[in-house]
């Protein structure tokens, strides 16, 4: 975690992979108890992974790491349950069955389409995220492509990911 806070990409990747496995077990267990499928668990895993990435500056190295992760996982679970209680009541029962049937089929893939969600973001944020995170350009190259400064690219990535997290939360509601 400390290495990822310092910007070590390889360590960050290992961290997120390892945490995603724990998160998957956690969410599958919790959601199975209320009769939700693995797709919803995977949605939550991705929401939590994204949150851990965006909020990685809030981890204080003087404190134990597990409670920090657990608090984020739990927060996202409660948020999910609150969002869904109302919307589940709105869905007719047959339709709800159909949704769960589909869920089993999709297995461990989430229902989010990153590229499609990205299109809903403001152009500047879109450009920065696509260039750096998906096309793998350096920040300097991305700045040239998006016609902005390097710090502009960094700010747009950070804001864009936050906006994306908000979009995912909204989308999961409907």
């Amino acid at each position: 975690m400390l290495a990822s806070q310092d910007g070590d990409a390889a360590a960050h990747r290992v961290l997120l992979e390892r945490l995603s496995r724990h998160l998957r077990a956690y969410y599958k267990g919790k959601l199975a108890r209320i009769g939700r499928g693995p797709t919803e668990a995977e949605d939550l895993v991705q929401e939590a992974v994204l949150a851990i990435h965006i909020q990685r500056h809030t981890y204080d190295p003087n404190e134990p790491f597990t409670p920090w992760v657990h608090a984020i996982a739990r927060y996202k679970l409660i948020d999910f349950l609150r969002r869904n209680r109302a919307s589940v009541a709105d869905v007719p029962i047959d339709e709800a069955n159909e949704v769960t049937a589909n869920d089993d089929h999709l297995n461990a893939e989430s229902s989010f389409d990153l590229r499609r969600l990205l299109k809903l973001l403001p152009k500047k944020m879109q450009c920065a995220i696509v260039a750096v995170k998906l096309d793998g350009l350096s920040v300097a190259e991305a700045a040239r492509r998006c016609r902005t400064s390097e710090s502009g690219v960094k700010v747009n990535i950070h804001r864009g990911l936050k906006a994306l997290a908000a979009l995912i939360a909204q989308r999961a509601q409907t």
Partner: peptide
């Protein structure tokens, strides 16, 4: 989307915080 894809995207050019 697969979670691996998301992790890959997030792990490109990680900014120090």
């Amino acid at each position: 989307m697969k979670t691996d894809e998301l992790i890959t995207a997030l792990s490109v050019n990680v900014e120090p915080v």
